[in-house]
Amino acid sequence: MDGTERPVLEVNGLSLAFGGLKVLNDVSFAVPQGSVTAIIGPNGAGKTSIFNCISGFYRPKAGHILFEGEDIGPFHPPRRAALGLARTFQNIALFRGMTVLDNIKLGRHAHMKTSLLDALCYFGRARREEMELRREVEEKIIDFLEIDHIRNKPVASLSYGLRKRVELARALAMKPKILMLDEPVAGMNREETEDMARFILDVKEEWGVTILMVEHDMGLIMDISDHVVVLNFGQVIAAGKPAEVTANPDVIRAYLGSGDVEALRREFRGEAA
């Protein structure tokens, strides 16, 4: 964590309510530039709601979201995407009617300029942009994520793990500055999880993309994250380095309810090792 640099994303006093149900209550945290920041917490703690506020689905009742110092509150989701906020979804949101390649290409939409007339003629700008995109997708993204064997397959025919990877590819095509991953390894076996962890670290290091993720797999979080934010009942109950956070009695109580704190502590240590 580098304290001198301005965080790429800052959430200040975010509150969200559906009717009388308070989903988020005065949530504040910062995502340092170049870090892997994880948001953890029990089910229903409001993790995905934070993501939805950041990407613009939900309008928070109060609070600000600053992206590179700019308040993105009034921006519509497409504008936020164009700024460099990319995300994946908990229950994979790929486009079933398209091939893997087209799904990935779609990620670049906001950065292209082809107009309707260009598109109908497929001449000049449209053609040039498409070729440039194809080259970049092939050489940087498909090659990097090792999905070249499935590029022409329809998404509907892929396994769960591969779909997650294609979704990551699509997010990378968005030229992200910050990549938000909603449970990137949920439902994956050990091997797939390890692959994904490797990809996430490579994205951070080779692409210089800051990562914000929601995840339940404590092993993965201990391994790859630099900074952890713990959420419970819509409130931040702890934040800090992974080891500090898992030693925090409040966090342990939130996960376990109450009771044998020592046993859980041992479990955390075991998984982290």
């Binding site: 009617g97 087209d102 670049r108 939409h109 598109a119 497929y122 942009e129 498409e130």
Partner: peptide, 24 residues
């Protein structure tokens, strides 16, 4: 074959996530 056609298909398949991907 271009971004506009892809955007149309994206709207058909899943319009909410199309929006997050930058399609007004």
């Amino acid at each position: 074959r271009t971004r506009i056609g892809r955007a149309f298909i994206a709207i058909r398949d899943r319009d909410i996530s199309a929006e997050v991907l930058g399609i007004p």
